[in-house]
Simulated scan of single mutants.
Amino acid sequence: MLNIEQLVAFVAAAEQGSFSAAARHLGKSQSSVSIGVNNLEVDLGVTLFDRSTKYPKLTPQGVRMLSQAKVLLRQAERIRNYSQSSVDNVEDILTIGIDPLLPFSIIESAIEKMSQRFPFTQLNVLRLSADSLTSAVSNNDVDLGFNIASDAVPEGLDFVSVGNVEWVCICSPDSMFADMPQVSNETLIGERQIACRSMVENAVLRAQGLFSQEVWRADDQEDVVKLVEQGIGWAVVPKDLMLEKKSMGTLIDFRPEFQRHEMLMSADVLWKSNAQLGPAAKYLCEILGAL
């Protein structure tokens, strides 16, 4: 049966160039490294090193074995790490719900850090409207919920702000709005507006950004952007969604009469008050709170 310590000695000797260098690298005696490699050769029935020169040199069998040994050691390390995660009660799956109004960019750096810290936790991402999102958190269907602040946070839920989302008005470069220094409220009311359904359902955003007498609705912000790109209407969207399209020349932002200052909305993360958040969920909340 393969012995992990023997594999470690073999890989170290191959990478460090000698048994003595491997011993220094591993903090062991040279004899223990040499014995480990010898025993591995006996167990496998092959010669891994040519010892006829001053420094041991891998044989053809040793070269092939080295790559396999590295794979086995990586797997062994993953097993050890996974076992430690189980001992620490790290979540196997972390489910988060995100309001369609929120661009993923507001949490993507935190998600990346969490994945590095907890590599064995699988992430399950759902897009849920505001009402569905709070219900999912309350019913333990979602561990963490991310939304745009609207009404008061429902009883039984805790929250922390994770930053502000800036909103801008956008249109196609071919739109009549494109060349206007400022678009009047009267003009906006008369032109078709494209809105995410969650925006229509959000009391604060609806009051600040819903102007037109004719409103087309879409469930997804990306669909809103695509409709505006086609010149079908104008929209109010998170600035992050507009920037790449603007650099490509398919969208522009314009200044409306009603928007005298930056339009900012707080983004919150929600969780059930009496829920026992796991280490990955806690870490994600800590990062986002710091951000």
Score class of each variant (00 low, 15 high):
278 G>A: 10
263 M>R: 08
245 K>L: 08
202 N>F: 12
128 L>S: 05
21 A>M: 06
41 E>P: 05
209 G>Q: 13
142 V>I: 15
212 S>I: 07
93 I>S: 04
245 K>Q: 09
229 E>A: 06
48 L>P: 08
52 S>M: 05
49 F>Q: 01
284 L>R: 01
116 Q>T: 09
106 I>G: 00
215 V>W: 13
93 I>L: 12
142 V>E: 03
213 Q>C: 06
113 K>W: 13
87 V>M: 06
143 D>L: 03
120 F>H: 11
93 I>K: 07
93 I>R: 07
183 V>R: 02
185 N>K: 00
207 A>M: 09
14 A>P: 13
91 E>L: 08
109 S>Q: 06
215 V>R: 07
222 E>V: 12
209 G>E: 12
29 S>Y: 07
53 T>G: 05
86 S>C: 13
216 W>F: 10
230 Q>P: 00
13 A>V: 11
170 I>Y: 07
152 A>W: 04
31 S>L: 05
196 C>Q: 08
272 K>R: 02
171 C>R: 02
288 L>C: 04
232 I>M: 07
57 K>A: 10
82 Y>L: 13
240 D>M: 05
266 S>T: 15
50 D>M: 08
288 L>I: 09
232 I>N: 07
203 A>W: 12
269 V>P: 01
263 M>G: 14
245 K>S: 14
133 L>F: 12
255 R>E: 06
6 Q>W: 15
264 L>H: 05
54 K>F: 14
287 I>V: 11
260 R>Q: 13
48 L>N: 04
169 C>N: 10
88 D>K: 09
16 Q>G: 00
46 V>N: 01
257 E>W: 02
274 N>L: 00
85 S>C: 09
60 P>K: 08
226 K>P: 02
197 R>M: 12
10 F>Q: 00
99 D>R: 01
72 L>A: 14
224 V>Q: 03
142 V>L: 02
214 E>P: 00
197 R>E: 14
51 R>L: 13
3 N>D: 15
